[in-house]
């Protein structure tokens, strides 16, 4: 498992531009948002704080779906499937590597957001960072599963707007869920990102975290494991 994690991290290290984008894009967007809402600081605080924990979800979804697609199309996955490596250790290796990457990304984004841009995390920026890593793993697991349905990288990048955007729109980040049309609220309840956002929102707002927070975390972890299991099922030792 550590061999795969090390290999994936080495591949990413070979690509400094990707690393720069992984760190630079969320920091840049958050800063942009701060000045877009220059005259509505409360709106920035409401959106910006949970956003720190949602960036890793989006980016890891995209990176994993492309990385896994590359393994499938380059023949390396077929090679690995003929070797004594278990699917669990392959996926676990990816999870460790992207978890490390997400932790670095979350640490930097949270530092910028909470220390410099004036965001508040009532229960501590570290909690937001921790939730961010969990969300990154959820994104990774969903990306892994989605990659099985893409034949080309063109298709894989389209899964980002198809799978991630609806969840972002409905999770309550931009408009409270209670203000949405009734059927949309039902749909939102079925999306894992809704619970990820709810946990982040509770972590950044004052007041006790409560049992709902615990439930949110359980749902996010459960969805991650379910998506990983589905993703593992798409890794076939034998292919037609």
């Amino acid at each position: 498992m550590t061999a795969t994690a090390q290999r994936v991290l080495r591949q990413i290290r070979r690509d400094p531009r990707t690393i720069a984008l992984l760190i630079g894009v969320p920091v840049g967007l958050l800063t942009l948002l701060r000045y877009v809402f220059d005259s509505q600081v409360t709106t920035f605080e409401h959106i910006g704080a949970p956003m720190c924990g949602l960036f890793p979800f989006t980016l890891m979804f995209l990176i994993t779906s492309i990385a896994m697609l590359r393994e499938r199309t380059s023949g390396t996955l077929e090679r690995l499937m003929s070797l004594p490596i278990s699917k669990a250790s392959l996926l676990g290796g990816y999870a460790i590597a992207f978890g490390v990457l997400a932790a670095v990304q979350a640490a930097i984004v949270c530092t910028v957001g909470f220390a410099w841009l004036g965001l508040n995390a009532a229960h501590g920026a570290w909690l937001v960072g921790l939730l961010a890593v969990g969300n990154a793993l959820l994104g990774m697991a969903l990306g892994l599963f989605a990659s099985a349905f893409a034949r080309t990288e063109f298709q894989a990048v389209q899964f980002m707007p198809a799978i991630v955007f609806p969840q972002l729109l409905l999770c309550g980040l931009f408009v409270p869920r209670s203000a949405m049309a009734g059927p949309l609220q039902v749909v939102a309840d079925a999306f894992p990102l809704t619970y990820a956002f709810d946990a982040l929102s509770r972590a950044t707002h004052p007041g006790p975290l409560g049992r709902t927070f615990a439930l949110d975390v359980v749902v996010v972890i459960g969805s991650t494991l379910a998506a990983l299991a589905l993703g593992a099922a798409t890794l076939r030792r034998r292919t037609p």
Binding site: A3, Q6, R7, Q11, R14, S74, G75, T76, L83, P84
Partner: peptide, 18 residues
Amino acid sequence: SVYTDLTVTENLQYFAAV
């Protein structure tokens, strides 16, 4: 079927570990 973004040695180290 090798990782094109790794060196020859890094590829070998990975497959050796696996």
